[in-house]
Every structure is written in C-alpha cells, then in structure tokens.
C-alpha cells in the first residue's frame, strides 16, 4: 500500500483557500503571540488598545503605498528598488511648494502659500516621472529592472539631496499638513489599495499585468504591447511612491532628503510576505495590505515589549526570508501536487 502520509497529503481539502487566508492567519498568529507575551511580560493587553491599533497601521501606511506599487511591478516579473528614494525626492518637491510666506528663507519665495493641490500634484508628478523613466529604460533598452531601478534609487536620492543642498524644507502650510494628520494617511493607503485591487482584478490593465509576468513571450504573441504596458506599471508605481512622499512630508511637517531610507525593501517585503511571487504572474493587493499590516504589527509589538531596535531588524529579516521560503514551497508544491 502507498505510504500513509502521502495519501493524507494528496487528499487534503478539495478546494484550496485563497493564499490571503494563510497570510491572514499568520497575521492573527503574530498578533496573538504579542498579546500573550504582553500579558506575561507586562501584564497588559497588546491588541485591545485602539490607540495602538491605529498606530500599527499608521506607521506603515506610507510603506503600504510603496508596496501597492511594487506589488504590481513584481507581478510583471520585475522589481523596483527606487521607491524609497523617489519618495524622498517627491517629498522634497512637494514640501518646496507647500511652504508658508511666514518663512523668509523659503525654497521658492514666489511660490509660497500655494493652494494645497499644487504641492500634492507636484510631488505625485515627480514620482510618476521617475517611474516613467524606470519603465522606459526597462521597456526599450535591454537593462534589467533590477539595474534600471537601482540606478534610479541612487539618482533620485542624489537629486533629493541636491535640491536644497541637504537642507530640510520646513514651515509647511496647515492645509497641506492636514494630509499627514490623524488617520488621513491610513485612509489614503486603504483607498489606494482599494483602487488598485479593483484595477488588478477587473480591468484590462490588470489582466495584462498578470499575463506579462506569467509569460512575456506569450503576452507579446497575444497582442499585448509589453513595452508600453511595463511603462504604465512602473509609472503607476512611481506615482504611488510620489504620493507616499507627499504624505510623508505632510506627516513630518517638513521635507527631508533622508526620508524613506530603505523603505523600498520594506515595501518589497510586504508584497512578498503577502504572497506576491518574485517569479512573476502571481500576487494580490489584498495580500500586500495584510503583509504591510504584519510589518506594522511587528514594529508595534516590539516597541510595546520594549525590545531593542536592532533585534527588531534581525527578526524582520528572518520573517522576510521565511516568506520567500514559503513562496518557493508553494511553487514546488504546485508543480508536484
């Protein structure tokens, strides 16, 4: 007779749950873990504290915006290393158009007290432009996404510093800073997630994105203009990074060239933890949102328990690797059934 464990394994539940269900369980697991530790170590609840729950999501909202973009890029089979730097550049540009005239040393003294939309659109446009350049390089030269976006990562950070010779840009208008206040970043993050979830699931843009990542050659033969499509995807990813910069500057009350340092890695981690496959063709925004919240929960949890920041990084690294291993495992299992 066939050996028993194999039988059990291959006869597992007939209909599989979506990948998100597993990730959601991981999130619950992590939360419960901190809850229990909380009672043991501090005699206090971790979860039943609305303030903390808000912060948990708030502190990763900006990373979440980047993650929504990078998820789409990864689905096409690419990668975007530039989002953190593009965020910084956009934050600088947005902030420079959001200063009040009270400030005598404004970046653009003639552009102070601008309506709130001006800095917002400027920041987003800069991000989209950076993404457009990424996409064009990838589509029309043979440069792989890793290199093209690595170049942009260095360049955009350089530009962000060069913009004011490293000086922060402060004294921003009240109106503009409203974008970073209270739950607004969370709302922006969730709205962006909703929009792109719909876009990936129900629009032609989404179908083409998956097809491109699943098999570029087949996508071309099926009539998809792959180059143009990649430009769209990278531009949108840049746009989201730009939006991230706008929110980051509003939240900090200033634009700083060092903003968003290494955020691109957290964004990629959130996507991968959320089930996006680095091999392309697979991934969902819902998974990425859960992946982002997992990162937030861990940060809050460690802070709550008073664990050292270095250890946080060590554990975070471990979790990212575990997520990729899980992805590999899923792929192999798929291949074998």
């Amino acid at each position: 007779m066939a050996n028993a464990t194999d039988v059990a394994e291959t006869n597992a539940p007939a209909r599989k749950l979506p990948v998100e269900a597993n990730i959601f369980l991981v999130l619950i697991g992590i939360a419960v873990f901190f809850e229990i530790l909380g009672w043991i170590v501090k005699g206090d609840t971790f979860l039943f504290n609305p303030q903390r729950l808000l912060i948990m999501v708030l502190q990763v909202s900006i990373i979440g915006l980047l993650a929504i973009g990078v998820t789409q890029v990864i689905i096409t089979g690419g990668i975007d290393l530039s989002s953190g730097s593009v965020l910084a550049l956009s934050a600088m540009v947005a902030a420079s158009f959001a200063q009040t005239s009270d400030y005598t040393r404004a970046v653009f003294p003639m552009f102070t007290d601008m309506p709130f939309l001006v800095p917002v659109l400027a920041g987003i446009a800069v991000g989209a432009l950076a993404g457009f350049i990424n996409g064009s390089l990838i589509a029309y030269t043979a440069i792989p996404p890793f290199i093209a976006t690595l170049g942009m990562m260095v360049t955009a950070r350089g530009l962000a510093r060069y913009y004011t010779k490293g000086q922060p840009i402060s004294l921003l208008s009240e109106e503009y800073m409203w974008l970073g206040s209270g739950t607004i970043p969370v709302i922006i993050f969730l709205m962006a997630a909703f929009i792109f979830h719909i876009a990936l699931r129900f629009t032609r843009y989404g179908k083409f994105t998956y097809a491109t990542g699943a098999n570029v050659q087949a996508a071309k033969v099926s009539g998809i203009n792959v180059g143009r499509h990649l430009i769209k995807v990278y531009t949108l990813a840049g746009l989201l990074a730009g939006l991230g910069g706008v929110v980051a500057a509003a939240r900090a009350g200033s634009g700083q060239a060092g903003m968003g340092l290494a955020y691109e890695l957290d964004a990629i981690a959130a996507a991968v933890i959320g089930g996006t496959s680095l091999a392309g063709g697979v991934g969902r925004i819902t998974g990425t949102v859960i992946g982002t919240i997992i990162l937030g929960t861990m940060m809050s949890g460690f802070t709550f328990l008073g664990i050292d920041a270095y250890i946080q990084d060590i554990v975070k690294g471990g979790i990212i690797v575990a997520a990729v291993v899980a992805d590999q495992y899923r792929q192999r299992k798929r291949a074998k059934v």
């Binding site: 179908k207 699943a214 098999n215 087949a218 033969v221 099926s222 009539g223 063709g281």
Partner: peptide
C-alpha cells in the same frame, strides 16, 4: 509552453487574453 500558455493563470484568463486587446 514557451509562447502560448500562462501557466500560473486559469483557463479563462488564458483564453480571453487576445480578445481583450480587441
């Protein structure tokens, strides 16, 4: 396998893709 199928996608997604550009 090389230039036809999107292995990770489902039957409908594989079948409809060319139609969608039209």
């Amino acid at each position: 396998k090389d230039t036809g199928l999107f292995m990770m996608l489902d039957i409908q997604e594989n079948m409809q893709i060319a139609l969608l550009s039209q």
